[in-house]
Write a protein that binds this DNA or RNA. Sequence first.
RNA 1: GGUCGGGUGGCCGAGUGGCUAGGCAGAGGUCUGCAAAACCUUUUACACCGGUUCGAAUCCGGUCCUGACCU
Length: 309
Amino acid sequence: MAKTLIVIAGPTAIGKTKLAIQLAQYYKTEIISADSRQFYREMAIGTSKPSIEELNAAKHHFIDSLSITHNYSVGDYEREALSLTDELFTEHDVIVIVGGSGLFINAIINGFDDLPSSSKDVRDKLNNLFDTQGITCLQEKLKELDPAFYKEVDINNPHRLIRALEVYETTGKPFSGFRNKIKKKRTFDIVQIGLNTDRGKLYENINHRVDLMINAGLLNEVDGLKSFRHLNPLNTVGYSELFDYFDGNTTLEEAIEKIKQNTRRFAKRQLTWFNKSGDIKWFQPNELESIIVYLDSLLGDPEHGVRKS
RNA sequence: GGUCGGGUGGCCGAGUGGCUAGGCAGAGGUCUGCAAAACCUUUUACACCGGUUCGAAUCCGGUCCUGACCU
């Protein structure tokens, strides 16, 4: 029997966690998280992790799996998540993957080319070069070492320039040479479900959820993480703004408004990402019935186990 | 009531006879190991009515609104 990975995508605060649990229960299976911030144990309130009850309602993977001090990349995630799917598919026909991080979902669905991972030394060196000499220096280097990629990159985006240069530094070959843009074959079927609603409603959800986070003690959580603020995982909506508040650069009200605004922007970017994929079947939140009808039509009813394809 | 200012896009804000101010917000987009990151693009104006002028957001008159001071 074919194995199927059900992907649940959508913007933040739309209700993905809830749907994932409902589907995991329906299929008596487990959930893989594709959320680039819920990995971290030290961050809880600000990342809207599933609650204890939710975690008990279905087995979740990649929640609290890392410390913020851990250096983690999408490449690591691709490897780990894929080996986990192999393992889970020995016992389940269906696995649910849920998350708002488009790149991470993409890592599982399509995979990446065989690129070298970044070494901390090389990354630090390039970051340092950028800090001291500016972006022009990176641009010139790239133009010389990898003119093909130079033509297509976001030329003002230091992250992308640094990644390309770092690949060159570690392999001696241009980054563009590794990019063959061929999707990897997976051994399982993939069904993608997207959750979305009208913009106004989504923004209301976001604003409300930020208020809930504040009431739940986000200030305390962020206060406790001050000494780690230089770490990449803390470059996150809900944390950066409160660090600013603790620094005395903004009032609390301003910081909260900023969190709401930045979360809205984040949601917008998530939608831009997911809209690009033509393979997502979109639903409104709380349309569990329709989603199950849709999934049954593709996979068969789990109780009776008849698959149509 | 009087005197003197000021009215510029959703907000802030420059301009002072002809040439896109700009910033923020909003919207759209990019995405191959920092991705809740980083980066790119971008709509909407000159309070109202009349006048001067080839041409007015800009000068003049009036109207309305608004601020400061005076009574």
